[in-house]
């Protein structure tokens, strides 16, 4: 058998799952969609003694809007469910646009948003989208919880602020104000492959037609998802046009730290970032009603 032996626990309540993690600490791993953890176990890179399977915890599987437009997504909401949600497509279209680039349909059947973000792969699309949407994450442990900004959650490749006994339970996405436009663009060898470079852009056209708000974040651009705050700030108060986009793109390229891969050198990745930031901004501006 490929994976090493483990004790399998499949609680059906959130409290039971948290209690199990508190009891076993580092020896236990949560099992979400398994699309990153099971490959690692098949290679025996990961050999957890206990698997706390979250697939039966119905309380973690939701995707709903509050009355004020805040979107709340449970950790165990699968990609497939989110990408097919008509309300999400209408109100937070960048999520659906970026999910189409996350792996293949077969992986999206089981993969979850919570598992993806906890895994914290810097090449992954979702962490960058979360930065661009200014999302917050609710982290729970037995008898407590805290809410952290996406910008503070990712520490490095496959590293987050999650403590040994903590679970990422909920993703909280604030409503996009009217006048907002979003875009996600990436370049990958094939659809479904990890991006050589990906860009998430969110901006808002103010009543005067100028840029009132902008957030740009990139994936495959450094050890964590990389925000480009200087490029974003440079847009504020400017016209949404080719000139301001080109300036922002040039700034964004200086704010990333691409590490290179067998597919793309850091130089090529920077080139892609410049091109994609410009394109994503003009697409987002076009969509900003």
């Amino acid at each position: 058998m490929k994976p090493g032996p483990f004790e399998w626990q499949a609680p059906d309540s959130l409290e039971a799952a948290l209690a199990l993690k508190a009891r076993h600490g580092e020896a236990a791993r949560f099992l979400a969609g398994g699309q990153s953890l099971v490959p690692a176990m098949n290679f025996r890179v990961a050999q957890p003694a206990v698997l706390v399977d979250l697939n039966r915890v119905a309380a973690l599987d939701f995707c709903q809007f509050d009355a004020d437009g805040t979107l709340r997504i449970g950790a165990m909401a699968r990609y497939r469910r989110i990408e097919r949600d008509a309300a999400v497509a209408a109100r937070v279209p960048i999520l659906v646009e970026a999910l189409a680039e996350v792996a293949h349909p077969q992986i999206r059947t089981r993969g979850t948003l919570g598992g993806n973000l906890s895994h914290a792969d810097p090449a992954s699309e979702m962490p960058a989208v979360m930065l661009a949407l200014d999302a917050r994450f609710r982290l729970r442990r037995a008898g407590g919880e805290r809410v952290v900004a996406a910008a503070d959650f990712f520490l490095g490749p496959l590293a987050t602020v999650l403590a040994e006994d903590e679970m990422l339970a909920e993703v909280i996405i604030p409503p996009l104000p009217s006048g907002s436009g979003t875009a996600f663009l990436e370049v990958a060898r094939r659809r479904g492959d990890y991006a050589m470079m990906g860009v998430a852009a969110v901006l808002r056209r103010g009543p005067d037609g100028r840029c009132a708000e902008a957030r740009i974040a990139l994936c495959s651009a450094g050890p964590t998802p990389m925000a480009a705050p200087r490029a974003s700030e440079a847009l504020i108060g400017r016209g949404l046009n080719a000139e301001s986009f080109a300036e922002a793109a040039a700034l964004a390229v200086t704010e990333i730290a691409p590490m290179g891969s067998v597919q793309a050198s850091p130089t090529y990745q920077r080139h892609l970032a410049g091109v994609l930031v410009g394109r994503a901004l003009s697409l987002a501006a076009e969509r900003a009603a």
Partner: peptide, 24 residues
């Protein structure tokens, strides 16, 4: 999870059978 040879339908949706445990 990469090659797709093991793809089955799980409640009608395509999924990798090499990335799930039978008990699940």
């Amino acid at each position: 999870g990469v090659c797709g040879a093991c793809t089955i339908l799980w409640d009608g949706e395509p999924a990798r059978s090499c990335l799930a445990f039978a008990v699940q």
